[in-house]
């Protein structure tokens, strides 16, 4: 009983600071003041908003997958290091997270710009005559978002990988599995859960991204969060709420689909053994 009581403040906090505000967002998007789908119709029928919606989904998916492809091997590398060396390597991974996203975004402008470090070096080396356009492109948005999100994926993967009993890998090797096979058959399935969770977290955070596309992207690289902020400051709260509901719904849908698919996959793996 006392255990349940200690949960109460947490529940109250979530209720007051999360559930009630989300409820108000739903109310704002659906009632004006009577029930209306006007905001959703407007969102779906105006080409610009749907285009931004699809590009938000696309950017978030690509960023999440690139983070997985880059971050998983890094986490694996760190886990395979002697335990005494791991904290320092994790420290290196975490250092960028302590810097403001805004500062890091402006730093990318310095790196990717026309007179930036990369272009200057390439010109100095004689590899190019004219600066390459890297800033204000979709590529710049990807590079910066991956850099910002990568530590989150590495940390999630790392913590699930440390829970894997390393002697299982050794056992597989003793039983005659090649290193590659031991990794594929033993380590990969056991670390998949953490990797999927990390990828989903990156995806969810990317869906709400805002500063990076506004500062580093081209004119077509707006994301839904930019539209929501614009509508809020124009005091079109109903429409802003409707877009937020769409964003939330799309994110939850992807979450459920990926979770369902991965549960099936893990189940399938278990049956095969």
């Amino acid at each position: 009983m006392t255990k349940r009581l200690t949960l109460l403040p947490g529940i109250a906090l979530i209720g007051m600071l999360f559930l009630i505000p989300v409820g108000i967002v739903f109310q704002q998007g659906l009632f004006d003041p009577v029930f209306t789908t006007e905001h959703f119709v407007r969102f779906a029928t105006r080409g610009a908003y749907m285009r931004i919606f699809w590009s938000t989904l696309q950017i978030s998916t690509v960023v999440a997958l690139v983070c997985l492809l880059v971050g998983y091997p890094i986490a694996y590398f760190i886990v395979r290091q002697p335990p005494a060396r791991r904290p320092f390597l994790m420290f290196l991974v975490l250092v960028p997270m302590w810097m403001s996203i805004l500062a890091r975004t402006y730093s990318w402008m310095v790196v990717l710009g026309k007179e930036g470090i990369i272009n200057q070096s390439l010109i100095w080396l004689g590899l190019i005559d004219e600066p390459i356009k890297m800033l204000f492109t979709t590529g710049a948005v990807y590079v910066a978002m991956v850099q910002i999100m990568l530590p989150i994926l590495i940390v999630t993967c790392f913590s699930s990988m440390t829970e894997i009993d390393q002697s299982l890998l050794r056992a597989a090797r003793i039983m005659g599995a090649s290193p590659r096979k031991a990794f594929r058959e033993v380590f990969l399935p056991l670390s998949a859960e953490g990797a999927i969770t990390g990828t989903l977290i990156v995806f969810i955070l990317s869906m709400g991204f805002f500063i990076v596309p506004a500062l580093l992207g081209g004119r077509r690289d707006a994301m839904l969060a930019n539209v929501i902020s614009g509508q809020v400051s124009q005091t079109n709260w109903g429409f802003a709420a409707a877009i937020s509901i769409v964003l939330l719904g799309a994110t939850l849908l992807v979450l459920v689909l990926v979770r369902g698919a991965s549960a099936k996959l893990v189940h399938h793996q278990e049956e095969a053994h």
Binding site: V110, K114, L215
Partner: peptide, 20 residues
């Protein structure tokens, strides 16, 4: 011909000083 469409007042300053 527009390199960038700025959204914050600090951006044009940054772009001018960087030669962007």
């Amino acid at each position: 011909h527009i390199t960038a469409w700025w959204t914050a007042g600090a951006q044009p300053v940054q772009m001018l000083s960087d030669g962007e």
